Simulated assay, not measured.
Amino acid sequence: MSSENLVKMANQIAHYFDSEPNRALAVQGVRQHIQNFWTPAMRRQLTQWITDHGHDGLDAKVVEALG
């Protein structure tokens, strides 16, 4: 899977939690989803993308969840 596709998917997960008024719960939801449903290879690839490109293009909740 391309890194750009992973970024898009991560952002979609974050946007799902946009309606959660408690930011900490929203970030936890993003973190939990990525942990539960993404393979370790997908998580490593997204982490590598962040290393190479920074946080540009990623929802802040994703950045915080991966922090």
Score class of each variant (00 low, 15 high):
residue 63 V to T: 04
residue 11 N to Y: 10
residue 56 D to P: 05
residue 40 P to L: 04
residue 28 Q to V: 10
residue 26 A to N: 03
residue 33 H to F: 15
residue 37 F to T: 13
residue 24 A to G: 01
residue 5 N to H: 15
residue 60 A to Y: 13
residue 39 T to M: 02
residue 55 H to P: 11
residue 47 T to Y: 09
residue 65 A to W: 01
residue 24 A to Q: 04
residue 57 G to H: 05
residue 28 Q to K: 11
residue 16 Y to L: 01
residue 25 L to F: 12
residue 47 T to R: 12
residue 50 I to M: 05
residue 39 T to V: 04
residue 56 D to G: 11
residue 46 L to A: 02
residue 17 F to G: 01
residue 51 T to A: 12
residue 24 A to M: 04
residue 60 A to K: 15
residue 40 P to D: 07
residue 39 T to D: 02
residue 53 H to C: 07
residue 45 Q to C: 02
residue 5 N to S: 14
residue 57 G to V: 02
residue 28 Q to R: 12
residue 64 E to I: 12
residue 35 Q to P: 01
residue 18 D to R: 10
residue 48 Q to T: 12
residue 28 Q to F: 13
residue 20 E to G: 08
residue 4 E to A: 15
residue 43 R to F: 07
residue 6 L to D: 07
residue 20 E to F: 12
residue 58 L to C: 02
residue 6 L to P: 06
residue 10 A to S: 09
residue 63 V to Q: 04
residue 33 H to M: 10
residue 4 E to R: 15
residue 46 L to H: 04
residue 21 P to G: 05
residue 20 E to K: 11
residue 62 V to P: 12
residue 64 E to N: 13
residue 64 E to G: 10
residue 29 G to I: 03
residue 37 F to C: 14
residue 31 R to S: 09
residue 44 R to T: 05
residue 1 M to F: 12
residue 9 M to K: 11
residue 16 Y to T: 05
residue 64 E to D: 15
residue 13 I to K: 03
residue 56 D to A: 13
residue 51 T to G: 06
residue 50 I to N: 03
residue 22 N to F: 11
residue 44 R to M: 06
residue 26 A to P: 00
residue 37 F to Q: 11
residue 66 L to S: 06
residue 66 L to T: 09
residue 41 A to D: 15
residue 18 D to S: 08
residue 54 G to N: 02
residue 46 L to G: 00
residue 42 M to Y: 05
residue 5 N to G: 13
residue 48 Q to I: 08
residue 26 A to G: 04
residue 16 Y to E: 03
residue 60 A to R: 14
residue 38 W to H: 02
residue 25 L to Y: 12
residue 36 N to S: 09
residue 43 R to G: 08
residue 44 R to L: 07
residue 29 G to W: 00
residue 48 Q to M: 08
residue 42 M to A: 06
residue 23 R to L: 03
residue 34 I to R: 00
residue 8 K to H: 05
residue 60 A to M: 13
residue 28 Q to N: 15
residue 33 H to Y: 15
residue 14 A to T: 08
residue 37 F to I: 06
residue 63 V to D: 01
residue 37 F to V: 13
residue 56 D to K: 14
residue 18 D to L: 06
residue 36 N to D: 10
residue 42 M to D: 04
residue 24 A to S: 05
residue 44 R to A: 09
residue 67 G to W: 05
residue 49 W to G: 07
residue 49 W to S: 13
residue 39 T to F: 04
residue 23 R to G: 00
residue 9 M to Y: 09
residue 9 M to V: 09
residue 27 V to E: 01
residue 15 H to L: 10
residue 12 Q to E: 11
residue 26 A to R: 01
residue 63 V to A: 02
residue 53 H to Q: 07
residue 64 E to Y: 12
residue 55 H to L: 11
residue 18 D to M: 06
residue 64 E to S: 15
residue 27 V to Q: 00
residue 15 H to S: 09
residue 15 H to I: 06
residue 66 L to E: 03
residue 37 F to A: 11
residue 65 A to S: 00
residue 59 D to F: 08
residue 55 H to N: 15
residue 1 M to R: 10
residue 30 V to M: 00
residue 29 G to D: 01
residue 43 R to C: 07
residue 47 T to M: 10
residue 3 S to I: 14
